[in-house]
């Protein structure tokens, strides 16, 4: 199991889409932090943080769902999953 995870992390590191999604997530997180600071300065409302975190989680959830299905699906469409089954079953 450790070897399979190790191999998948290696593939993850090489995946351009992963880095794009990661930086997009970080960017959106940064924007949300600024939004929070701006809004809390203007209105000093306590409920705003919850809303911002909820919106962010929703977006990240969407990103993760798209990315994981593409990342895992690629193993099946390329047939590379067969290499793993042959060696590790």
């Amino acid at each position: 199991m450790y070897k399979l995870l190790n191999a998948n992390f290696f593939r993850l590191k090489k995946d351009v889409v992963f880095w794009i999604f990661l930086f997009m997530s970080l960017g959106i997180a940064g924007i949300n932090v600024f939004r929070y600071i701006e809004v809390s300065r203007a209105f000093s409302s306590e409920g705003i943080l919850d809303d911002i975190v909820k919106q962010y989680m929703l977006l990240i959830g969407l990103f993760i769902a798209i990315f994981v299905s593409l990342f895992i699906g690629k193993e099946y469409s390329n047939g590379t999953v067969k290499n793993k089954i042959i060696v590790r079953t």
Partner: peptide, 10 residues
């Protein structure tokens, strides 16, 4: 098997 099992992005 059937086709070469290679990761096309690498």
């Amino acid at each position: 098997i059937e086709q070469p099992s290679i990761c096309l992005d690498m």
